[in-house]
Simulated assay, not measured.
Amino acid sequence: MSFFKKYGFLFPLNNYEQFVTFQIKDVNYIKDNLEALINIFSVQDTDNIDYRTLLDSVLFLLLQKEKVIKINDNTCYKSSNKDLLHNINNANKIRFDDNSNTIQIPRDDGGTVPAFEVKDYLLGGGLNVVIIEEYENLMQDDDYSLSFLKQIVKAYVSKKTTIFSEDECLIIDFLYHFSRRILIIIPEDISLNTLFQEVVYETFTKRENDDLKQALLKISKYLIEKELNHFLSEIKPKYDADTMRPNWKLPSLFSAMYLSLFYLDSNQAMYRVCQNINCNQLFLVSKTNQVKKYCCVYCTNAVSQRRYRQKK
């Protein structure tokens, strides 16, 4: 509130006229990015992981396009870079001719099928095979809904010859196996809440997909580091001589919010969603507090009154 009282908005407006134009969709974009990161924070070091929320939030941060927000042509917000997404979308079709990774897989009828060996970080750093005929058929399919799947498969097969970090390779492998086992991902359909039908989440949480769940947790920690480092980069320490205390120079209100996440000790506290169906806001609570389900007294009373009326 002190930031709003001083500057009047998410970003300081002292260099502008009395009024500026700012799109509501841009406010929502900033809010959703921060909420997704808080969601990811809230599941770390917990025994009962909400994989639905984690999956939605990770895919949201991974697959949304890079965005720059301006006020009167001056950049006030820039999302973390989407180099990985850019590289996936620009992955090239691989040539299998005379490739040392091409092998022959036996068929039931005694023949063989040509396949391509791929190092797979999701499978414990082991090897996986891609049937070359299936690969070629996918590349020739004109179905638009398969466009992103094609790029994932291209990146999956060619990542050995491309400069990807191990974290980025794991992300590519996760997207590949998720698309093959559960559902084809369409980036344009990505949102923060309830991306998929219930059966998708049920399938994802089955035991045979434990490797996908473990990979998702690793990816979530990669995103925490990536997002925080990006949004903390413009924050600078300063010393306040009036109070004789250290302080921070904060370029915007949302940067202060990321700074508060930076200081959050996930071993001591976590964000929890208010269980009042008319609220659903996030609130900070001690990890040892298993009782508190509501963000405030108002929501506690509202739920109690609702239950009383239903019982009556």
Results as ranks from 00 to 15, higher is better:
Gly124Pro: 00
Tyr258Asn: 09
Leu216Phe: 04
Leu63Pro: 00
Asn99His: 15
Leu34Ile: 09
Tyr135Asn: 02
Lys160Glu: 15
Thr194Asn: 14
Val58Cys: 10
Ala115Phe: 11
Asp189Met: 04
Pro251Arg: 10
Ile30Glu: 03
Ala115Gly: 13
Ser79Glu: 05
Arg180Glu: 11
Tyr271Ile: 00
Leu149Gln: 10
Asn28Lys: 13
Leu37Met: 06
Asn14Ile: 01
Asn101Ile: 04
Asn81Ile: 00
Leu62Thr: 01
Cys274Asp: 05
Leu264Lys: 12
Lys249Ala: 08
Thr162Pro: 00
Thr112Arg: 11
Arg272Ile: 01
Leu127Lys: 14
Tyr16Gly: 02
Asn48Trp: 07
Asn247Met: 09
Asp32Ser: 12
Glu225Gly: 03
Pro106Cys: 07
Val291Trp: 05
Ser158Glu: 12
Arg52Thr: 09
Ile38Gln: 14
Ser260Thr: 09
Glu168Asn: 05
Asn81Pro: 00
Tyr156Phe: 15
Met1Asp: 05
Phe231Gln: 06
Val118Trp: 10
Arg245Glu: 13
Asn247Leu: 02
Glu208Thr: 01
Asp141Glu: 10
Tyr294Leu: 00
Arg52Ile: 03
Met257Leu: 12
Phe262Cys: 11
Ser260Cys: 07
Ile88Asp: 11
Gly110Pro: 01
Lys159Gly: 04
Ser158Ala: 14
Gly8Phe: 08
Tyr258Ile: 04
Trp248Ser: 03
Leu37Thr: 11
Tyr222Phe: 14
Thr300Gly: 04
Gly124Leu: 02
Lys78Val: 00
Val68Pro: 00
Gln197Phe: 05
Val273Gly: 01
Val199Tyr: 14
Leu85Ser: 08
Met244Val: 02
